[in-house]
């Protein structure tokens, strides 16, 4: 290609790139604006004179305020632990159930698949009232246990649905060969079939962790007390009471809380995209 050909191609593609740039600005501007605001001083946040899209004297003061908020790290660990534990438990239970639904012939397998799909698409806003009542009777309402026990209600259906799709596409022959060679059924499944479905298992894990980390309804409705808050509810309680918002630390919190998910996601972008159709939980 000579210079004029490249130039002609660039001109032809210009509208495409302009349209893409417009879409990217629309989708990403809020994150930029939140991040930029988090670096501004209290006075500058409300000052729109001059170029307000770049902080004039960047400061980490809002981050300092956030990290020195009483209980901030309690909320952080709560969120991390609840997300990790519920993810591990849900993925294990879902591997078993997804495997059974996709690969084993037994009475009720098809019905089980249908029921799992129904629980997967049922909205979360549907069950928090009766769950709160039931957890109260069990003496779990208010504590973090309420989240450990309820988060799997949306993680297991989703992971089982996702994983049964992966398991259905793993060939049967290697497992059968291993059993001919003397391995037990369970041994063959664990050593042969599960490793072949590892990509699906990782995807289920990432989606689960993200869903737990981002969860809101149950942490609002089912926990109480400063010690039992998650990052979202804790930060909201500290900096966003009603209409009154302390913008600086809130924007710092928005930035900080997005980082772990963004990192996880940039490592596994392809898996995210491939598992996306199954991951339509947000509406």
């Amino acid at each position: 290609m000579n210079a004029s050909q490249i130039a002609r191609k660039a001109i032809k593609q210009a509208p495409l790139y302009l349209a893409l740039a417009a879409v990217l600005i629309f989708l990403l501007f809020p994150f930029y604006w939140g991040f930029i605001t988090s670096l501004k001083t209290e006075a500058e946040i409300y000052d729109f004179t001059g170029n307000f899209l770049i902080p004039k004297a960047p400061t980490f003061n809002n981050y300092f305020l956030l990290f020195t908020t009483k209980n901030y790290f309690v909320w952080f660990w709560n969120t991390l632990f609840v997300s990790l534990v519920t993810t591990v438990i849900s993925v294990i239970i879902s591997v078993m159930a997804g495997f059974a639904i996709a690969r084993l012939k037994f009475r009720g397998a098809a019905l089980a698949g249908t029921l799992v799909f129904i629980t997967y698409i049922a909205p979360k806003g549907f069950l928090f009232v009766p769950l709160a009542q039931i957890l109260k009777e069990w003496g779990l309402l208010g504590s973090l246990s309420a989240l450990y026990i309820t988060y799997p209600t949306f993680l297991i259906p989703f992971c089982t649905w996702l994983l049964s799709g992966y398991f259905a596409n793993v060939p049967h022959e290697p497992e059968e060969c291993a059993m001919v060679d003397g391995a037990s059924r369970i041994g063959a499944i664990v050593r042969i079939t599960l490793p072949m479905a590892i990509s699906g298992i990782i995807t289920a894990g990432i989606f689960s962790f993200t869903a737990s980390w981002n969860e809101l309804v149950y942490s609002i409705a089912l926990t109480s007390g400063e010690q039992n808050r998650m990052l979202t509810t804790g930060v909201m309680g500290a900096f966003a009471q009603g209409d009154f918002m302390v913008i600086g630390p809130l924007m710092a919190a928005a930035t900080v809380s997005s980082v772990p998910i963004a990192i996880l996601y940039f490592f596994f972008t392809d898996r995210f995209v491939s598992g996306l159709t199954a991951g339509a939980t947000k509406g």
Binding site: G34, T210, M236, V273
Partner: peptide, 20 residues
Amino acid sequence: ALMLLPWILPTAFSTMIWQW
């Protein structure tokens, strides 16, 4: 990858930014 961020990042916090 960049485009997916609004869908992937926590709604609670991105909505706070929209509120602002």
